[in-house]
């Protein structure tokens, strides 16, 4: 998963391929558990969805721009626009079905 920052974020979400962004922080225990699940899905959806992550400690402006008040939060973008978001940790199947229903 691509580590995103203020400079690279906009280009990433505006790409041709839908982009899923994981907002996380190193001190967030549930984020640590969720991360490998998203890594796994990024392999499964290779070529269909680009996966990236934003460390909200390093990028507080991105977090506030997207109104992140709970982490983990994942947002799916298409052509730069958020199409759906999931707050908290969900089962692998639920994340997969939510993403694919928007493709």
């Amino acid at each position: 998963m691509l580590e995103l920052n203020q400079e690279t974020f906009q280009d990433f979400i505006k790409g041709e391929t839908p982009a899923l962004v994981d907002f996380w922080a190193p001190w967030c225990m549930p984020c640590r558990i969720f991360a490998p699940v998203l890594e796994d899905l990024s392999d499964e959806l290779d070529g269909k969805v680009e996966f990236g992550k934003v460390n909200i400690d390093d990028n507080p402006d991105l977090a506030s721009q997207y109104g992140i008040t709970t982490i983990p939060t994942i947002i799916l973008f298409q052509q730069g626009k958020p199409v759906t978001q999931m707050i908290g940790v969900h089962s692998r199947e639920k994340v997969l079905s939510t993403i694919t229903s928007h493709l």
Binding site: A25, W27, M29, A63, T69, T70, T73, I87, G88
Partner: peptide, 15 residues
């Protein structure tokens, strides 16, 4: 929920 409402203070307090 997730828009200011949270259940884990130690998780989300830094926000």
């Amino acid at each position: 929920l997730g828009r200011g409402v949270g259940y884990c203070a130690t998780c989300d307090a830094p926000l």
